[in-house]
Every structure is written in structure tokens, then in C-alpha cells.
Design a protein around this nucleic acid. Structure first.
Lengths: 101, 101
DNA sequence: GATTCTATTTATAAACT
DNA sequence: TAGTTTATAAATAGAAT
């Protein structure tokens, strides 16, 4: 964004890529924190790249672990497709789905 | 952002809070996708709130699970504090830390 | 209540230090 | 080459639909 439009592709220049990474990391973490506070939802993010040996966790390792546990039982991609189909079917037989978005 | 500055606090009005949640969710997912593409890093995000029964995963359940494995072995908050201290100590005895950030 | 519009704030690419 | 500044693109709060 800014002085020029951003091209949606890998930034070829390594040093500029790192500068961009640092700025954007900061931006995403701020946005995540805002979402959590403004809308009262749980947000857990892990970013893993060549700039640190360990993955970066937001807001911290413990919250990430707690939140990610909820994902354990979720379907794999293959099963997920079936689930959606089932959901859509349920939507059809009930007048309206009850979940938000 | 926008017509008015955002107040860093829970949005009291539930319907407006949901509208804001939808907009900001979309924004964060876009930013995450951009970071991944522009800077070639792994990003995994889980958002869990009252608007869905299941946690929302980005980019999908499988990637989140894979990334989560890397976080399993990371220290807890308590141990983390010690780690930082140790890192700082290492920084002191070596002229310069070698990690990015 | 969801979708579109628009004024304004916020994020950030490039320049500069 | 990390921090600061500035011009501009992008996100989004509130309004309109």
C-alpha cells in the first residue's frame, strides 16, 4: 500500500522483503489485538518464517495452544467438503441456518 | 478507521459489533494472505467467537494443525520468561544476536 | 440484517536519515 | 541497515439502501 500499489506476488528483493515483513507483521498483530478487544473474540496466530528460529505466536504460546486445541477435532479438508454439503442440506430443510455468517 | 476514530474498547452495541467483526475478520484474513504471499512465511490463524459454533481457521484446518505442531514444544509463559533472560544473556556475551527482528 | 457507498482513518511503500 | 517521514493505497465507521 502506499507510494505504490502492492503487487500480489513474492517480493523478490530480500532486504525489502524483510522490511515489508516487519511492517506487515506489526500491522496484523495490531489488527488481531483490535479484533479481540473490539469484538470480544479469541484470536490466535502463528507466523513461521526465515527471520526467526521459532514460530512467532500471538498473543502468546499458551493462548495459541489453548485455542488451537479446539481445531484438533475439526474435519480434514476432505471431510470438510462433506460437512459443507451436509450443512447446506440442513440449511435447505430448515427455513434458515441459525449460525452467524 | 474511517468516519470516526476507533475507540479501543468493546463495541457495546451487539449488532454493530457483529458488523465490525465481519469487516475486520475479512481484513485480517486478507492481510494474512498477503503476508504469506509477499514475504513467503507460514501463517496460521484461529478465530473463535460467538458467531460460529466452530473456530474459524485460516488458511484451513490442516495447515493450522500442521503449524500448531511447531508450537507444541515451545515454552509456557513461565518458562518463556527464563528463555528471554537467557536470550538476553546470550546477546550480551555475543556481540550481536543473529536472528532477524 | 445484509450490502453498497463514501468520508476518513489507518497502514504502509518509498524516500530519507 | 534500522529508525523516521511522507505520500498514497487500503481498510473501514457510519450512512444509505
Amino acid at each position: 500500500m502506499s507510494r505504490n500499489k502492492v503487487n500480489y506476488a513474492l517480493i523478490e528483493d530480500a532486504s525489502y522483503r524483510k522490511v515489508s515483513y516487519n511492517k506487515r507483521m506489526k500491522g496484523i498483530l495490531k489488527k488481531s489485538d483490535e479484533l479481540k478487544t473490539l469484538c470480544d473474540v479469541e484470536v490466535a496466530t502463528v507466523i513461521y518464517g526465515p527471520y526467526r528460529n521459532e514460530p512467532y505466536t500471538f498473543p502468546n504460546n499458551d493462548v495459541v495452544r489453548n485455542t488451537f486445541i479446539k481445531v484438533k477435532e475439526l474435519p480434514t479438508l476432505e471431510r470438510s467438503k462433506n460437512m459443507v454439503t451436509r450443512e447446506e442440506f440442513t440449511m435447505q430443510i430448515t427455513s434458515k441456518g441459525k449460525e452467524g455468517k
